[in-house]
Amino acid sequence: MTSLISDEQILLFSGSMMEVCGSSKVTLREFGCEQSLLSRPDGSASFIQGETSVLAAAYGPAEVKVSKEIYDRATLEVLIQPKVGLPSVRERSREQYVRETCEASLLLSLHPRSSLTLILQVLHDDGSLLSCFLNAACMALMDAGLPMSCLFCGVTCAIDTDGQIITDPTAAQEKESRALMTFAIDSKERRVMMSSTKGSFSVPELQQCIAVSQKASEKIFQFYRDSVRRRYSKNL
């Protein structure tokens, strides 16, 4: 009896997968980035995905407060500033996502007993905000010249009511979608560093979104590469 159920489930899965296949909305909006645009921070970057834009600034390594000192590595603090009002629980949880992703890619043990601060300011929210935070954070850390073991990028996927995958959704698309997932992909092996989801979805849908994000991440990493190359083209 039990095996019969599982067979049915597999059939169901493959049925839903066919639908996803015919999707044509899998595009990334135009994106842009400007590095070292602020004079005070050690590294800064603005990242723009369509209309969504985030400004990131990184300080460090610098002196650390005694209460926050970690004896064998640097302390990383991430602050997210919303556009209106004060940071709420939502920002706190996003700070956690961004911080733990950065912690995994930064080589913190090279700067023991010091502090790194990353400040993210929302300039405009038009969907895919968390992935924009991640991309801006990575560019700012690169600009600050902090040693990292790998780069990372954020990709947001939405599944709309027809089961189609939309990458880099706008705010309107996010609202209509049935499920929303954001992944951070690393540049070394294109594996999932972070995942944050909303709404319910099936296992094949998740795997598809991961695969799509991995594909999309290559475009973003290529963009990282191009912009860094352009930036240093005159310094040589």
Binding site: Q9, V192, K198, S200
Partner: peptide, 21 residues
């Protein structure tokens, strides 16, 4: 119904799709 409600992974070292499965 074996539908996923949340896959929460706040950063850390990366995982491949197979491991997630």
């Amino acid at each position: 119904a074996a539908r996923l409600c949340a896959v929460h992974k706040p950063g850390g070292t990366s995982l491949s799709g197979e491991k997630l499965q």
